[in-house]
Design a protein around this nucleic acid. Structure first.
Lengths: 167, 167
DNA sequence: CCATATTGTTCGGAAACCAAAAGAAGAAGA
DNA sequence: TCTTCTTCTTTTGGTTTCCGAACAATATGG
């Protein structure tokens, strides 16, 4: 009877595999690495976020996050703004170029899904949405959920430009 | 209208993110790299498969597939058997150790899902399964689907042992 | 037998990643 | 104020992963 759970997991793995291939394709199309894309998406989700939080969400070591952010900053896809409440950290956010880059490449999976989803009868659409949200709530751990640790609002732009000449 | 498709994709991305974090955790627990785990799973799915097919399914370059297989063979997780119908290629399959390794680590997502899924009322379980399979069919491309390109049955074991002394 | 294609490998370099140590800034207590 | 401890980020050094390109071996079709 927990047979059905197994079937679910199998279906899930098919979806996962397709999605994985997809991100790679999209990444290649944008000229970004997969990890860079993930980081950009994390930043977009939160609008503003610190390196440590990026590391936690992306599941990489802090050192790796530093390198990723530095790279993205060099490409001018993200901007950094020193926090004033805690001057050790800084807030990373997407530049316009970053947003553009993130959405420039067509996403085959997104498109395919949207197209075919539109053909499905209404009641079934609703069913699928409900099921997906149910599953998302089942599996998503609070640790990586969005929402916590928002930046203070009162910090004004004080750009991190000192290290502009980093090689 | 197509609002619902967007909500679906958002939910899907939550699931994806959770799953991604999960594979990393499991990989770390097994001492395998993520890519190695994926390859092992591909091999298990097909029982027997050639390097090129592995490369295509895993979405990596042939050179990478070679390296991955070589590594897994060194760990004695996979065995190779030269094809007789086409002596360029060979069939890769899982050893018992490989199967064990692949399933040794507890899978937090799998567990969590199974547990919570069991608590869901019957009709909703059925609904979720149907929805997941629907989605899987929507997104999965035939190219990476299992089933095609099976090995000929008549090839007997002629191990690739020549390179046993590879450093 | 000779092109051409396919399969897999080797090689060299680029990039990703991490652990550990270091640096810089906050927090807490005397 | 002056420790001392903690947190956040970076640097360093070294490992691993991955790919492109050139290559060898085999197949296939004239």
């Amino acid at each position: 009877m927990e047979d059905r759970a197994v079937s679910c997991l199998i279906a899930l793995r098919r979806v996962l595999s397709a999605a994985d291939n997809n991100v790679r394709a999209v990444a290649k199309a944008t000229g970004l690495s997969v990890q860079q894309m993930i980081v950009l998406q994390i930043i977009e989700d939160t609008t503003e976020i610190t390196p440590m939080m990026i590391a936690r969400r992306a599941g990489v070591a802090p050192a790796t996050a530093t390198a990723l952010i530095e790279k993205l900053a060099q490409m001018d896809y993200v901007s950094r703004r020193r926090s004033e409440s805690d001057r050790r950290k800084y807030w990373v956010s997407l530049t316009d170029a970053g947003k553009t880059a993130l959405h420039s490449a067509p996403d085959p999976l997104h498109q395919k899904f949207s197209e075919e989803f539109a053909l499905i009868p209404d009641y079934e659409q609703a069913m699928i949405l409900a099921a997906l949200e149910r599953v998302a709530n089942l599996v998503s751990t609070p640790g990586e959920a969005p929402g916590a640790d928002q930046p203070h609002v009162l910090e004004m732009s004080k750009p991190i430009d000192a290290e502009k000449e980093t090689v």
